[in-house]
Amino acid sequence: MARKLLLSLIVAAGTFASVASAGEDNIQLKEGPGREIVETRCVACHSLDYIEMNSPILDRKGWEASVGKMVRIMGARIDESEVQTIVDYLTTQYGK
């Protein structure tokens, strides 16, 4: 739900061609604890296929580094307290 809302906000505010957003709507991340928070935090700048595409190639350290890069370099707004849940989800569902 939250992700759909975010997506429509992005599309409404943005200049991005809607055709690609329609494809993006069909992405289904794997069921598991933490999915909702990953879907809302990781969708602001790029589609969630960035996660699917990069699997299963990263271990926990790899996902920690990746999430850290998103926060420290790319400017992702993710609470310190959420990082653990996100890394757990990515490692369990999309880790090697």
Partner: peptide, 18 residues
């Protein structure tokens, strides 16, 4: 495979950014 406006079907690796 999917089609961006003006393109023929290409291999989609990511939707946004394309």
């Amino acid at each position: 495979y999917d089609t961006l406006p003006g393109k023929q079907p290409l291999i989609k690796r990511s939707w946004r950014p394309p």
